[in-house]
């Protein structure tokens, strides 16, 4: 290792070159590599320009639709805010029909197990039945067809 005074000498006498080297033949092909890079970048720029040119009509159409929408909707929202609020509220209101889940829930939570309970709120017809009539009814031996016939008569 060199002594301290060698370092000061080093600093006092500027060297001819920095202590670095380059890979062999590095400078020989530099011009070609730079030209290739410029050509590649120019090509990329021109292909991007081509894509923009192709998309231009579509973009113009989309922009004009957006403009028309803004020209119609914005004045309406400014001059008729209550009307727009009402229509938008109606459109989000829940429909009157019940969903499948709601139907099942109301069926199972109902007090009776009849499917009939599911349909509407019609008042049940309550007929007063006499005790004797009930006894007669229960004591008669009729099949289902006979009962049906007697009811129709």
């Amino acid at each position: 290792m060199k002594e301290k005074k060698d370092i000061w000498t080093e600093l006092q006498n500027p060297p001819s070159k920095a202590p670095f080297k380059v890979p062999e033949g590095y400078f020989d092909s530099l011009e070609d590599r730079i030209e290739a890079r410029i050509a590649k970048e120019t090509e990329q720029v021109s292909s991007q320009g081509k894509l923009i040119r192709m998309l231009k009509p579509v973009l113009a159409m989309a922009a004009s639709f957006a403009l028309i929408f803004m020209l119609v909707y914005y004045p309406l929202s400014v001059f008729l805010p209550s009307y727009l609020a009402k229509t938008s509220q109606e459109s989000v209101e829940k429909p009157n029909t019940l969903s499948e889940d709601e139907l099942l829930f109301s069926y199972f939570s109902a007090s009776t197990n009849s499917l009939y309970d599911l349909f509407g709120d019609e008042e049940e017809v309550q007929e007063e039945v006499d005790a004797e009539e009930l006894l007669d009814y229960l004591s008669t031996e009729m099949n289902e067809t006979e009962i049906f016939a007697s009811l129709n008569n």
């Binding site: 370092i7 670095f20 080297k21 890979p23």
Partner: peptide
């Protein structure tokens, strides 16, 4: 990490 450093110890310390 430079594989192309081409100096002695003094130059390395200076760098």
């Amino acid at each position: 990490t430079d594989p192309y450093f081409d100096g002695d110890d003094i130059q390395y310390r200076l760098q």
